[in-house]
Structure formats: C-alpha cells, structure tokens
Design a protein around this nucleic acid. Sequence first.
DNA 1: GCGGGGAGTGATTGACCACTCTCCAGCCAT
DNA 2: ATGGCTGGAGAGTGGTCAATCACTCCCCGC
Lengths: 191, 191
Amino acid sequence: MSPSGRRRLSTADERRETVLRTAMHAFAARGYYGTSTTEVAEAAGISQAYLYRLFPHKEALFIALINHCGWLMRERMSRCLASAESTDPAEVLTTMASSFRGLAAEERDLVMVLLQANCAASEPSIRAAVRDCYAKQVEYVRAASLASDERIRGFFADGMLGNVLAALDVAAVDAPWARTLSCPAADTTPR
Amino acid sequence: MSPSGRRRLSTADERRETVLRTAMHAFAARGYYGTSTTEVAEAAGISQAYLYRLFPHKEALFIALINHCGWLMRERMSRCLASAESTDPAEVLTTMASSFRGLAAEERDLVMVLLQANCAASEPSIRAAVRDCYAKQVEYVRAASLASDERIRGFFADGMLGNVLAALDVAAVDAPWARTLSCPAADTTPR
DNA sequence: GCGGGGAGTGATTGACCACTCTCCAGCCAT
DNA sequence: ATGGCTGGAGAGTGGTCAATCACTCCCCGC
C-alpha cells in the first residue's frame, strides 16, 4: 500500500490517540448507538478489525473518548486561566465560561460528544464514566474559582444550555426564541 | 385474546395515542438510534408491522413523540399556573420551575425523551421538530411570565442542567460534586 | 347475506452491525 | 538468515434492524 517502501510504522498507542481524535467527529453526529465501528475505523484510516485490537469493544472505545474529551476541556480551561489575572470567584467563573464558550464554538464535536454521552448513560459503565467526568469537572472548577455552590451550579447550567443550543445549531435560526436563549452578552457578572 | 368476545376495537387514532404514551418509556433509555421499532411495538402491545401502518416510518414516529412531549409539558405548566396567584415575572418563573422540576421527577421518561431528541438533531427533520418544540416552549414561558430575556434564559438553563442530572441519576450519587449540581433548596423564591 | 374497508398480524428481505478468525508484512535481536 | 513479535488487513459470522407484503378477521352499511 505504501509508496516507495520505507514507511514509519506508528505504535499502537499513537494509533489509539489518532482514533480518539478522529472518533470525536464520528460520534458527535449520531451518538453511541447511531455510530458504527466501521465509521469510526474509516475516520481513523484503519480497518475495523484493527480497531478491535486497539479497543476491546465499542463501549471501551466510547468511554475512552469521554475521558479524552473531559481531559481536553480541563486542559483548555487551565490554559485560559493561566493568562487571567483576577482571583475573584465571579470573575474566574466568567473567564472559564467564555473559555468554554470558545471551545464549544470552535470544537463543536467535543461538546456534542459530551451531550451524546449523557444520552447513552443507560449503559452502566458509560454512566459511570460520565459521572466521573462531571465529578472531575466540578471539582476542577471549584478549586480554580473558589466560588459558591450556587454559582458553580449556575456555571454548569449555562454550559448545558450552550451544549443544547449547539446541537440544534440555534445560531443559524433567526427567531425571537433563538435570540432569547442565545447569550449575546449574558455575562452573569453581578456587577 | 379478549375475554368473552365483544371487544371494543380501538380506532387507529386511539392506537396512535397509546403508542405515543408507551413509546416514551422505550425511547427514553437509548434514544432514537438505540431503540428498535420492535421494542416500541411490543411496549404498545401491537405488532411491529402495524406500527408501520400507524406511522409511515421511524422518524415520523419519533417526531410525533417529540411533539407529544412538548404538549404534555405545556399542559402541565398551564395547569400549575392556573392555581398560582402572583403575576410577578420572577414568581411566575419560580412556579414554572418547580412545576417543571416536579414533572422531571415523576415523569423521568418525558424529560429523557427531550434530551434524546437533542442528540438526534443531526437528522434534519428531527432537528426541525426539536427547534419548533423549543420555540413553542420559550414563547409560552415568555407570554405567561412576561419575564426578561435574561431570566427566561436562566430558566431554561436550569431546566437543561436538571435534565442531564436526571439522565445520570445524580440523585443516587452521594458526593460533593453531585450535591453542588443538585439544587437542595435553590429556590430563588425571594419570599 | 354480503361486500368493502379498516384493524391487525406472520413472515420475509436486504442491509448493516459488533465482533472474530486467520492470515500477511516488516522489524529487530540473536 | 531466521525466528519471534507487533502492526495491520480480508473475509467472514450470527444476529438485528427498518421496512414491506400478503394475508386474515371483523364490523357496518346496504
């Protein structure tokens, strides 16, 4: 298959990473049940059989993807936070919120996978993975912002609404309800 | 099947209603892609073949279900609102929120279907139905509460978080993050 | 009584899906 | 050079799924 012999073979771990990266797009659209392992393999440029050598079964693949997405989110937030100056809880939360909003905008697939993960939570091991993901996320936000429970809750509520609006591509809808739910400048900064 | 002969045959419309009622539970767990038409038919006590006489295809069935759920929600809210007295926007919203919270608690399947619907929104006609459902919901809340855009947005954000928490059955989790995201007494009731 | 139409089903079909078996190619240490 | 090990693919396998077809039963108007 490879032209001119010499091809740098990638190790299984490298392959697993590529798979996770490309699988995000595959699973984002139709979720855990609606996405076939063949699609995932094709997206990663490998055979379906080899996908099953990298991951024991579909469930494990999806769970690895959830963890990957959670990690990406935290990574992004910490990068954003590093360049912030204030330590006021409310302001830190606002920074994080806009960071998350940015992520949702430019990496739609990532937030879509997390939304899809919620919907596959009837599978016990997936539910466990998703809970774990939220646990890490909440504790990260709590530690970084030192905000009150109520404010943290508000932060996540906003995030969830944002995810749903992304799923429906509400940004492309020109109607009063769409404008109401979208946040033109809805900083909750209490001033 | 029927005892002692004489059985009142239900019309197709009655059947469609039963199907929608029972299909809620079927679709709630594994969503549009993960639920087979056979499961839906069994839940309704009819043959799969007849399901296809009642609805032209799976998509149409699911869309009818979305509309049904939206209608149920609005119905519930208006019933709750009828027994309220205040006309203060914030208080009306609080009433609605607790009404919704009640609905989510005692009819988990309903909110799960709406969550699942978001995740199947990559199907164009489903996306259209979900958008339409939100449009009606937002305009209903707006008209009933006369609240500001920002407050309405907050109302829906809270609802979304509630849906996700229900999907993960966070109520059964005993951990700090779970307590933070759940609203122990987060009535914003200003007393 | 009877004929047409609606309620309802069993059996089927072709596509697809998760997962497996078996095999091949290149690399490296001996 | 060679034997073992890891990366990788072809070709299934049994099962399931959405959708269809051909068929029966029963009611109601005539």
